[in-house]
């Protein structure tokens, strides 16, 4: 495969990984992957990147901040019941 195929397919990789690529596009990508080690690495590490972020807990609202949200100084009518 010529390198321009890699460039050509690059824009479709998220659709492919999200299961939103057409059957024709999937077949084209999979054919290309058989011959292109670099694209296999890109797609495997891209898939892994997505997975790692799906498992990331993310910043936790600090308990003190949560308490303060119930006690906005200028919002008398919105206090905790």
């Amino acid at each position: 495969m010529e390198p321009h195929d890699c460039r050509h397919l690059l824009g479709d990789l998220s659709d492919y990984l999200d299961g939103q690529a057409s059957a024709m596009l999937c077949a084209e990508i999979e054919r290309h992957l058989e011959d292109c080690a670099n694209c296999r690495v890109v797609i495997d590490t891209l898939r892994q990147t997505i997975r790692l972020y799906r498992d990331l807990p993310g910043p936790l609202l600090p308990p003190a901040a949560r308490e303060r949200l119930y006690h906005f100084p200028d919002s008398g009518q919105f206090l905790r019941p």
Binding site: P59, L69, Q77, F78, R80
Partner: peptide
């Protein structure tokens, strides 16, 4: 204008809003 509803809304949505804001 139900106060308890405001508290529920804070409970439900503040964690997600904080994750966006913190980032």
């Amino acid at each position: 204008g139900d106060k308890a509803a405001c508290a529920e809304c804070v409970e439900l949505h503040a964690p997600g809003l904080y994750r966006l804001a913190r980032r």
